[in-house]
Design a protein around this nucleic acid. Structure first.
Lengths: 339, 339
DNA sequence: TTGTAAGCGTTATCAC
DNA sequence: GTGATAACGCTTACAA
């Protein structure tokens, strides 16, 4: 079949264990045999079998990715490719590969993670989201399996390495930004309320509204999926109100696009009729018309740091959990106006 | 450590092999012991170790993805997330996971593939691109390792299962579309000339131009990277001509966005000054201003079929290689006008 | 129908 | 420094 360590050993006239040592770059091996073995390896085109190695080793050089829902849906949002880009860059630096298992239902996804973990397919996991009472996170903690999360864990945050923006502050600032432009009816378009990012930002929004001594209207707060369709739903709900908001703070660019789209169909103008501050600043934000004023949350860096934190966990298991806060920055474009 | 097949065997009071048979759902095992074993597995929370299984089995239930350049760069183009979405959907249906290794240089990527293959980390590979004289493809063929390619292999196409659009025809039709709108100076903005897709489409373009008895101008043909920056470069080159094209056929939406951007900066209007027909029809196409007239090449299906073909190869190794042609469709929007 | 035992290709632990 | 040899956790003939 394929060439194994034994073949190399035979050709180099040494024991398999010696070959193994050469691979591992074991210091106490003579230069001479090292060379001899390497020649044999080259000659035979030898490559170690990773499965055998992981088995003996208990390490796979791979990290697993967990997405919030089916990759099918998830990948539609540019956030994820971008965060994966960050993860992949870091992973590559340390010669780790990425492993993603997918599923359509909560249950399937959970099973996929269990297989990754128990099956020892990966050395650690990056959770690409954080939600309230997540059973996957609970499972990983219980198993004491190395993982980091992008976003803030709802509980035990101090025990889990996580990478996040200061979402509370960001949302507060963005709301104040709209207030400063004279808006008083500000709507909040968030994702599912069990996502911690939604919660944090909602709190920031509420804080700003209260601080401005404005009434906090429940009907101005809408939750939908982080997809274009979600935005479309959201704006329909809001427009159905007798006194719709004059400005929106929207959790996700993709949703904003949905909103733009629907508004456009209805003959309403952004920013003339409604102003929008969005989040994520994905590449498209500058392409839409009008281009989106959006908060750049540094998605790439979020991913990069998450992978880095994970590799720390893996490599020094007694590492202290830490929180990394990635800075954000408002990028002003054309979707907001002063009233 | 973690619970193994032996633990289950002991608890259920059977031999390890019996447990293994239960896992494999071997028919000749009594219902009674089957139940007994399953209970033990549940009780202990047993999950098979994938590495051990692959080792004994020579199968990993994972498929590898090969990208044209560093994931870093690649993931910026929405084509890839979308094609991965398709692959992932199919993979999921058959309980395969995805495995991606990345690298910055040609050399690193090649090494990554060799490790995937020789290290038996995956059962097969999907190549996400096709280029002239690709050493990775040559390697996979030489190793007789199962793989499929998205795009048309430059040589041995009949021996390799591949999934492609009819790019020659598509480009010809799109050129004719522009001709029918009265354009006579039509530029071609392609990707790297070693990508087969560029070649095929260029040939289609040339055919249409010749058929229309128009002069084939070398200076109207530009090659850049499939990125926004590529588009910006391309349009600069074209505008520098004394008699620039009045219409462009552009290989990739991302490039088109770059072109739009630059044109906008220069105060030139699309479609009034220049018309554009683009390819890919990624989600953004309808969001830009003007929205892009773009050929929908069914990226998702490209990925889906590629994975399907691969699983065929893996599951029945003596499968005949086949070619799957995915249909395309022009989506007319606002980036073209009649002169 | 089930058990025994020999792999699968490494690494790790002892010896020498 | 290097070589035996026993894991690692599972599958699969071959026996029983």
């Amino acid at each position: 079949m394929s060439v194994t360590i034994k073949d190399v050993a035979k050709l180099a006239d040494v024991a398999p264990s010696t070959v193994s040592r050469v691979i591992a770059n074991n210091p106490r091996i003579s230069e001479k045999t090292k060379r001899k073995v390497k020649e044999a390896m080259d000659y035979l085109g030898y490559h170690p079998n990773f499965n055998a190695r992981s088995l003996a080793n208990r390490s796979t050089q791979a990290i697993g990715l967990v997405m919030p829902s089916s990759a099918d849906k998830t990948m539609q949002n540019p956030f994820f490719p971008e965060v994966i880009r960050g993860i992949s860059t870091m992973a590559h630096e340390q010669e780790y590969a990425l492993y993603m298992s997918t599923g359509n239902t909560e249950e399937e996804i959970f099973e996929g993670v269990v297989r990754m973990v128990q099956g020892r397919r990966v050395d650690g996991i990056v959770m690409l989201y954080s939600r309230v009472d997540d059973n996957i996170m609970a499972y990983l903690q219980e198993q004491n399996f190395p993982f980091t999360v992008i976003g803030k864990p709802f509980k035990n945050a101090e025990k889990i390495t996580h990478i996040d923006n200061d979402n509370f502050k960001a949302a507060q600032e963005m709301t104040e930004y709209l207030l400063s432009k004279g808006h008083e009816r500000i709507g909040f378009v968030g994702g599912n309320l069990n996502l911690v990012v939604t919660i944090d930002r909602l709190l920031g929004y509420e804080k700003a509204i209260r601080k401005a001594k404005l009434p906090l209207k429940d009907e101005y707060i809408v939750h939908e999926e982080f997809l274009k369709e979600g935005g479309q739903e959201a704006i329909k709900e809001l427009l159905a109100l007798e006194n719709p908001p004059s400005a929106l703070i929207v959790m996700d660019d993709l949703m904003s696009f949905g909103i733009l789209h629907t508004l456009n169909e209805l003959g309403l103008s952004v920013p003339d009729d409604i102003s929008i501050v969005s989040f994520n600043n994905v590449m498209l934000s500058e392409l839409s018309s009008p281009s989106l004023t959006s908060v750049d949350i540094n998605i790439f860096q979020l991913g990069y740091e998450a992978a880095k934190g994970l590799l720390d966990c893996i490599q020094s298991p007694k590492h202290n959990p830490k929180r990394v806060t990635v800075p954000y920055k408002l990028v002003e474009r054309q979707s907001c106006r002063t009233v």
